[in-house]
């Protein structure tokens, strides 16, 4: 890595090296020093730092075969030889303080990075030089390598989402019941999305609403040509309206529906009612293609939809 940095200013040299890397085996570039300091040398001064590595796969001395490596301090921290002679902060690298590209080079010595694999879509994390350590904590101490109970990894950058959770209606992220990663697949986005619909994510917790139903509300089903999904109506982070709705329900429904009869019939008595008073099964129904409440006859005092004026509407 230091070799690469040294020739970074020489365009011709860099081009040669890149061509060689491109055509040759992609085994990680490693420090070529002959005698790097041992872990015990590092721990002489950094006493106890090894304990923060013990719960995870970076436990010092761990051996891995693919690629062949024994985890040591110098696996991630470059410049140790100089640091031993001059124990200044500037003489050794810390991946968490490196620019994204430099940290990426360090981590990909052993790891196949997400950005090189299955994020074939257009993921902003892949282009904006995110440092691996933004999400993965290596010296984990009492925290797992990546577990975002309080959204502490995501929200410092996604502030709009953070304040969204302060709204009147919100998903329980701050309460610790779910995390950002419960819904957002930062990695492996191409996986586990049957039917290419957003409902595949939501149905994990909301199976009753996700269907499939014999009579489906087109806006709910991402696999239909309407290309909708749950977020057609709901703001998942937070909303000033109940049930995370983007608008109060009457307004929301009128975005797509202009039911003339509801406003004129019965002297306009239904005009001010919320649509869901009757269309209770709005996500989908097993019996009604208008998503009407199966028990509505009893509720409104007449069997309007079975034997009455609206009998043609199931």
């Amino acid at each position: 890595m230091r070799l690469l940095r040294a020739i970074a200013g020489n365009a011709a040299g860099a081009a040669i090296v890149l061509v060689v890397m491109f055509l040759s085996d992609s085994s990680p570039a490693r420090s070529q020093t002959t005698d790097p300091p041992t872990d015990s040398t590092c721990l002489d001064c950094h006493d106890g730092l090894n304990r923060s590595l013990e719960p995870g796969p970076h436990r010092l001395g761990s051996e891995y075969s693919q690629p062949k490596i024994v985890v040591a301090c110098v696996s991630c921290h470059a410049g140790a030889e100089m640091h031993v002679d001059n124990p200044d902060r500037e003489t050794i690298t810390t991946p968490a303080e490196l620019a994204g590209h430099e940290a990426f080079v360090t981590c990909t010595q052993c790891h196949l990075a997400h950005i090189g694999l299955d994020n074939y879509g257009f993921d902003v994390h892949a282009v904006q030089e995110m440092n691996c350590t933004k999400c993965h904590r290596i010296h984990v101490d009492d925290k797992p390598l990546l577990l975002d109970d309080r959204a502490e990894y995501c929200l410092p950058c996604h502030q709009e989402a953070a304040t969204g959770f302060a709204r009147a209606s919100q998903h329980p992220v701050f309460q610790g019941n779910i995390t950002c990663l419960s819904c957002h697949r930062v990695i492996k986005r191409a996986d586990n999305r049957p039917g290419y619909d957003l409902a595949a994510i939501c149905r994990g917790c909301h199976p009753a609403e996700a269907g499939p139903f014999p009579y489906e509300h087109e806006a709910v089903n991402g696999y239909s040509v309407a290309e909708g999904g749950c977020t057609e109506c709901h703001n998942p982070h937070g909303s000033e309206n109940d049930h995370l709705l983007a608008q109060p329900t009457v307004h929301l429904c009128r975005r797509c529906h202009a039911p003339v009869g509801h406003i004129t019939a019965h002297g306009g008595i239904w005009a001010d009612y919320n649509c869901l008073v009757c269309h209770t099964d709005i996500h989908g129904s097993f019996v009604s293609n208008r998503f009407l409440d199966p028990a509505m006859a009893a509720r409104v005092g007449g069997d309007c939809f079975r034997t009455g004026c609206h009998a043609l509407i199931r």
């Binding site: 009753a208 309206n241 109940d242 049930h243 709705l245 109060p248 329900t249 001010d272 009612y273 919320n274 869901l276 008073v277 209770t280 509720r299």
Partner: peptide
């Protein structure tokens, strides 16, 4: 059900 502005309170079991 979210019957806003109407005050209706029909309870739906789940």
């Amino acid at each position: 059900l979210p019957y806003e502005f109407r005050g209706d309170t029909t309870v739906v079991g789940t």
